[in-house]
Design a protein around this nucleic acid. Structure first.
Length: 271
DNA sequence: CACGGATCCTGATGGC
DNA sequence: TGCCATCAGGATCCGT
């Protein structure tokens, strides 16, 4: 469920506080999606120089290498003075001189992977095929349109795949397509330049707004349990099947695309 | 290469 | 402490 906005909000919540810290120990719970790929000793003693994000991956930069962290669908990170023992769903602790970074992930679709550097096979296996950052400086219309022209699949599934543009998960894919007035089933290559531009704008708008909302609830981040932001967003179509479109009143529809639920307004969104 | 289906896991939910 | 089936979702893997 963490899509790009929640990952970014998570990053902002601890990046400054962990930067400059030295790793003191590593604790592991149950296996995650992949093995960490290094011995704890590799990490101990290393200084953390910063935390970046690429798509839905967090990158914890170390003196020698980096940790790639993914929250999967049910993961959350906390950072603080951790005194509690690891719980049932805590699967990774990075104890540092400035606090403990802890990954909690009931469904264990998440991952923590060590890579010696960003260009290494370990890192490129995860980052190599990722599309452009939608909130970055380089989400250009021309590139976006060129990429979509090569995709015959329905636009919703192209967005979800993350190879053209990263960070748009199941919820925001439906929301962005609603905002752009595009039917999710429309094949990517059939979108006109104007509609691609509307979609580009919609993706930026929806994601940026979600980061802001997440940020506004971030103040309670440490008190609450890490569920930030977007649950409070008022969805236009997501999970609203049968309810009235907020714009035109038509009943919102739910369909299934590639085993994923998709929601749209049959009136506002044109094929 | 691009596409689509299967797959990993477990908490929540609903039917009986 | 009711039991069971179904669902949700990100991203990879694999067959076509």
């Amino acid at each position: 469920m963490p899509e790009l906005p929640e990952v970014e909000v998570t990053r902002l919540s601890f990046a400054d506080r962990i930067t400059g810290a030295t790793v003191q120990s590593v604790r592991l719970g149950k296996p995650l999606r992949w093995p960490v790929g290094c011995l704890p000793d590799t990490l101990v003693g290393q200084k953390i120089s910063g935390v970046r994000r690429r798509g839905k991956y967090l990158m914890v930069d170390l003196q020698q290498g980096l940790l790639l962290m993914h929250l999967g669908m049910s993961g959350s990170l906390t950072f603080g003075e951790q005194t509690r023992a690891m719980g049932k769903h805590d699967h990774f602790d990075l104890e540092t001189t400035q606090g403990v970074l802890r990954l909690n992930d009931p469904r264990r679709f998440g991952a923590v992977v060590f890579a010696p550097n960003e260009q290494s096979p370990q890192a490129q296996k995860l980052l190599g095929k990722l599309g452009v950052e939608p909130l970055g400086e380089e989400f250009f219309l021309a590139d976006f349109q060129r990429a979509l022209k090569q995709r015959k699949a329905p636009i919703k599934q192209v967005l979800l795949a993350g190879e053209v543009v990263v960070g748009v998960g199941n919820i925001y894919a439906s929301e962005a397509l609603f905002l752009a007035g595009i039917r999710p089933t429309t094949r990517a290559l059939r979108l006109s330049r104007q509609r691609v531009e509307r979609l580009r704008e919609a993706i930026c708008t929806v994601l940026a707004r979600a980061v802001e909302k997440g940020g506004s609830t971030l103040k309670d981040f440490s008190n609450a349990h890490g569920e930030s932001g977007y649950f409070q967003l008022e969805a236009a179509v997501y999970a609203r099947q049968g309810e009235n479109c907020r714009v035109c009143g038509t009943a919102i529809r739910m369909i299934r695309q590639g085993q994923r639920a998709t929601f749209y307004c049959p009136t506002c969104q044109k094929p």
